[in-house]
Nucleic acid binder design. Structure first.
Length: 535
RNA sequence: GCGGGUGUAGCUCAGUGGCUAGAGCAUCACGUUGCCAACGUGAAUGUCGUCGGUUCGAAUCCGAUCACCCGCUCCA
């Protein structure tokens, strides 16, 4: 199975199109076609139903410390600019980069350190990626640059301490971290991973705002509103599905890394004392959800981040990853991240942007000694009216990509098998084995042949089922071909009206995966299909 | 952003040395057809990714540009 055949099927059958295709397309943007929009809606609705609307808040779910409540939310895409300053996105997603003309490598301007060094009458500023071994790196590069051997290491005359490249004005004497010649670095160029826009008619910096790079912040800033309006006690989860935008430098791999994408996020607020248990609960629950929706064990892994990868305030982060066909053998792409975020986000919106490097977390200060980005000043802590305990809730964040999940389901469903044709000869069949809950079309209705009143009966069955499910009517061509067309669309059931229908009001239901047929009464069709979809 | 590759019908792809554009599949119509990619007959489909240049003449040569794929880079 290759990605190409999946991409080709998606286009051919109307799952996915390139955005603005007639104008040549636009990198990182994709449209969902008639089948794709149904599939993606089903993915989102399955998630919303399983996580929110059908959530059993009376019972203690397996692995959970206690019952919990779930609510939904739908926030705006453009929010107050201060939201992104306090959340840290503004600083993090807004980088200056320098390119090396010689090695074609790119570095973050503020992540290169360097020192002046002199030898053989020449002086350069030798740079290295900031880190513990930067001096070792610099020495190596300096020796190479001056064409010196290790034993002549004392010929290097270092001048001053290691300083950040941002302190250097001209790059003429700067030696790039991997370059052989000095002066190959370009001037720093601005990269903004957040889409910028302007609120109001005046397009000055006063009205500058950003399209959200994640849906999560809308939940944090509404935490108090939801709590006050619903009378819930913690633990409480707040869910949101919505579009987010990131101006990725290199969108690639079909819809996997898009610039406009949809997220399905939960921010789960709980007592810090129980947060570890809740983290484990959500991690396992979310993994199981993908299993239940049809992703096989061999293609799905949970990857716990190592301690070094974690922000120090986080007790754990786990990625749920899928073996996409475009990844190298043994590599996986992220579907969802489940993160323990502690009280970082709520505190950020109370106090202002926190310095992630501090422990315990403290406010990040600007050069003037004042808070770099000032918070709302609102109290977002929670008082338990039963115990009278007051605390800032800890947050567990299961953050899923709706487009990535949809893509994973498409990849997982794509199957080529061998089935006999009407002469018994084996033929390759392309079939999308989507979970019936996710399938864009639940059932197709066919008259076996276009005569003897079969189309009339089939149309009646079609119109009746249409009230309950997304169904499709097809009378064109031989019935075998119609079955195969539905296989490619992922339709799990095909209902055929035949000669016997006219005698006893029964039809056959054909199963996409097993090709088996059962005969049921027309009146029972709806119930049988419903049971199978949910079953 | 850099390097390499690709771009021709809905899909998969031919194509020539510069002159009127091709196949298979798919699609549509009619007839036949009684359960897994049927058959017959007929039909429709492209400014050859886009823009520009060279030329009497460009899908073909040159330049630019856009998109996709691969490798770097990046990836809260």
């Amino acid at each position: 199975m290759t990605m190409d055949s999946i991409v080709s099927l998606c286009k051919r059958r109307g799952f996915l199109f390139q955005s603005s295709e007639i104008y040549g397309g636009l990198q990182g943007f994709w449209d969902y076609g008639p089948l794709g929009v149904e599939l993606k809606r089903n993915v989102k609705e399955a998630w919303w139903s399983d996580m929110v609307s059908a959530h059993d808040d009376m019972s203690t779910l397996a692995g959970a410390p206690s019952p919990y409540a779930m609510e939904g939310l739908d926030c705006t895409i453009i929010m107050h600019p201060q939201v992104w300053k306090c959340s840290g996105h503004y600083d993090l997603f807004h980088d200056f980069m320098v390119d090396c003309r010689e090695t074609k490598k790119r570095y973050r301007h503020d992540q290169l350190n360097g020192r002046w060094v002199e030898a053989k009458g020449k002086k350069v500023f030798v740079t290295a990626p900031a880190g513990d071994d930067e001096q070792e790196h610099m020495t190596k590069r300096a020796l190479k640059f001056f064409n010196l051997r290790n034993k002549n290491i004392d010929d290097l005359k270092w001048d001053g301490d290691s300083t950040c490249l941002t302190e250097i004005e001209s790059f003429d004497e700067v030696l790039g971290p991997d370059a052989k010649e000095a002066g190959t670095l370009t001037a720093p160029r601005e990269f903004n991973l957040m889409f910028k826009t302007y609120v109001g008619a005046l397009s000055g910096e006063e009205g500058a705002a950003f399209l959200r790079p994640e849906t999560a912040q809308g939940i944090f800033v509404n935490f108090k509103n939801v709590l006050d309006s619903t009378r819930h006690r913690l633990p409480l989860g707040i869910a949101q599905i919505g579009k987010s935008f990131r101006n990725e430098i290199t969108p690639r791999n079909f819809t996997f890394r898009s610039r406009e994408f949809e997220q399905m996020e939960i921010e789960f607020f709980c007592n810090p004392a129980e947060s570890q248990d809740w983290y484990k609960f959500w991690r396992d629950r979310r993994l199981k959800w993908y299993h239940d929706m049809g992703i096989s064990d061999k293609n799905l892994i949970m990857r716990e981040h190592h301690k070094e990868e974690l922000a120090h305030y986080s007790i754990g982060t786990a990625d749920i990853e899928y073996a996409f066909p475009f990844m190298a053998e043994g590599e996986y792409g992220e579907l969802e991240g489940v993160a323990h975020r502690g009280d970082f986000d709520l505190r950020s919106h109370m106090e202002g942007k926190l310095d992630e490097k501090t422990n315990p977390l403290t406010l990040q200060l600007g050069d003037d000694g004042k808070p770099k980005w000032k918070g709302s000043g609102k109290d977002l802590s929670y008082r338990d009216d039963l115990t009278n305990e007051k605390y800032i809730p800890h947050v567990i964040e299961p953050s899923a990509g709706a487009d990535r999940a949809t893509l994973a389901f498409l990849c997982e469903a794509y199957t080529e098998d061998e089935q006999p044709d009407d002469k018994g000869k084996m033929q390759t069949r392309t079939v999308m084995k989507l979970h019936p809950r996710l399938a864009p079309i639940k059932a197709a209705i066919f008259p076996l042949v276009k005569k003897d009143g079969m189309p009339e009966v089939a149309k009646e069955v079609y119109l009746d089922l249409k009230k309950h499910f997304k169904v499709f009517y097809d009378a064109k061509g031989a019935v075998g071909r119609r079955y195969r067309r539905q296989d490619e669309a992922g339709t799990p059931y095909c209902i055929t009206v035949d000669g016997q229908t006219l005698d006893d009001k029964t039809v056959t239901i054909r199963d996409r995966d097993s090709l088996e047929q059962v005969r049921v009464k027309i009146d029972e069709c709806e119930q049988v299909i419903r049971e199978r979809i949910n079953g």
